[in-house]
Design a protein around this nucleic acid. Structure first.
Lengths: 206, 206, 206, 206
DNA sequence: GATGAATGAGATTTCATTCAT
DNA sequence: AATGAATGAAATCTCATTCAT
């Protein structure tokens, strides 16, 4: 459950005594189901099976719960992106890997993706997290820049904007799945992966 | 003000007696400044310079105000996209026009764009508007499809996904401006326009 | 309609231009349907087919509408009771006539009875009308007293309390009809009439 | 306080920690003083000396408070009426006991009687409680019927209507006390008791 | 007389947060 | 650590009443 948030060092299911983890996982499910604003602290506690006062033992506020969900997820994501960056591979291959990283998260933990897409990506309460979100786009940007330096990519394109294009494309496809506008079977996910890479690298022109 | 929402038949500023319009414009400014959830109905009324009870004369609820802002804006946007679709032009040129349409809205009415990007694009309360948002992507999809039929675009790419890629790219650039991650001077907007079209049509590869 | 409230001097239907009457009749229907507190001034106006501002042309407030309904009805009722009092008849016959007067109002104007029973008889807002309600019981009391003086009725009973007993019995039967606890066909009404008189005059004992 | 609502098993005053009871008792006092509609939830809380939010910990709404007052009182009353029914006694004696039960409640808890008479007995919001109110009249009806079967009472009177007559008489006398139309000293209460029984059983006729 | 847009006091209700136990 | 009763700020929404037209 919520593998993307945190994995026990030994890979085992977290001890049931870990109420903090229990609350975070419950929060993701509840936020996914009802939305951050529409759910109450009591809903999270009920989902976790604890008294709602306990939430304040582990978190400062309801908002901090959302921020924690975001930060724990995002730092794991950034780390994964960085290891793609550092692996020896063509820029195109790196873009493919990052694309896969993002899009496969949907199958791994749809509730978490739903929360990130709907509650965190752009909502006002996350204006402060902009820095961390930006960090991801900068990684994308570095991949583009390295591609340009090596001659693999065209140099006339602004790497910052290009990174935004790629990032936006990925986020939109996740959104399509969250909002059920796009089919999301295993094959569909694979097809989406190739499509993004194909468009971005080769362009639409025949 | 809020040119995107509604334009007087004669192009003049709406009569100041139109309190409904006054409230909608005020709501856009307040939503942009504080966010939908953080602002109170009283803030909207104060911004409009009317008693807050009047809001309920014209709208059922605070939420209906947001929905109205969205719907009025979106239908104008859809209409604009449709006229691009119907104009004689290459698929690439159509994509460029649509890109311009979206990106220039930022200079025309940044408050409105801010609201749409942050409050409407993905928030839970807009799950019901999905149909209308989807309608825009379908227009994009039709442009891609026509490009494929004419031989201008490659046929092996899924038009639905490609539309999502383009749409997501545009939305992300607007988001970058909203969140001040990207520079948004007049030249920057023009550069963004070319960049999106260049990436999407010609690809990154050298 | 609402014959009990006011009858045109000539017995004709009030001119449709008489908006005051229109509003009072509408108010009775709306109060009967939704209750005084649950209905809004706008409901009354809508039922009357006029703008709600007009109500304030004829009445000081919503409460005054209810008071007017009560007062107009009640003074007609008191007058009718007084003519029974003054007619030559045995005390028993007078009680019968008064009973008939009260119980038959249900068939004449059930909406009006419903309003009087539910909104006026005991609600706090009518505490001030006590005097007028009391007036009715005093008429009953005088009938009892005259019956005692003439030797028709037993003298050991307190006339004030006896009047309350009779009055309460009548009100309760109306209430039974209002709340649909008692059958209210024509025959049922006649039977109720005899029952009240029989119990009160002859008693239950065999 | 509010002995009629609930009595501690040991007959002692409820523990002051029982905030629910505190709120119910406070509500009775406030409803009696200002009326249900004229009082605010904040008044009840202030009277109880707790924060008004606490009321919503124990009750769904202000209306549920009134309903609870009614239901708890009424079920105690119904139980008392039933034990009178089951006790060996003549029908007349049973009527006397029930009469005493009702009329003495005024001395026991005038605030509670005031609330029941004014807010519950007939107000629209209690239309749903009709069933429970009816239950009381049915008990009265059974007493009359048993009196008829044993030959103590005349058989030609409708027991349902007769029950309404008795019930209405009692309610009206309570109302007289509530509205200060009738004297309510200890002797007056005793006299009212005899008067009702005398009228109903022996009739007015000399 | 007649309209209905406009006002704004005020009420209920919600719910994040605290804290005694 | 854990509970959940208690708090109270705050927000939406209602609706009687006013008044310019």
């Amino acid at each position: 459950m919520s593998a993307g948030i945190a994995i026990d060092p030994d890979g085992r299911v977290p001890a049931s005594g870990d109420k903090r983890r229990l609350l975070l996982d419950a929060a993701v499910r509840v936020f996914a189901r009802k939305g951050y604003h529409a759910c109450r602290v009591a809903d999270i506690a009920a989902e976790a099976g604890v008294a709602h006062g306990l939430l304040y033992h582990y978190f400062e506020s309801k908002e901090e719960v959302l921020q924690t969900v975001f930060r724990e997820t995002w730092s794991a994501f950034l780390e994964a992106v960085r290891s793609v960056e550092q692996a020896e591979a063509s820029a195109r291959e790196q873009l493919r890997k990052v694309t896969a990283l993002v899009l496969r998260s949907w199958r791994d933990d749809p509730d978490l993706v739903r929360v990130l897409v709907r509650e965190v990506a752009r909502s006002p309460q996350v204006e402060r997290e902009v820095e961390e979100i930006d960090e991801a786009q900068r990684a994308f940007q570095r991949i583009v820049e390295r591609g340009q330096e090596s001659g693999e990519f065209r140099r006339e394109l602004d790497p910052r904007l290009t990174a935004a294009v790629v990032y936006g494309a990925l986020e939109e496809i996740l959104t399509g799945w969250v909002l059920r506008q796009l089919p999301d079977g295993d094959e569909d996910v694979a097809r989406a992966e190739s499509c993004v890479v194909a468009v971005v690298c080769n362009g639409l022109l025949a």
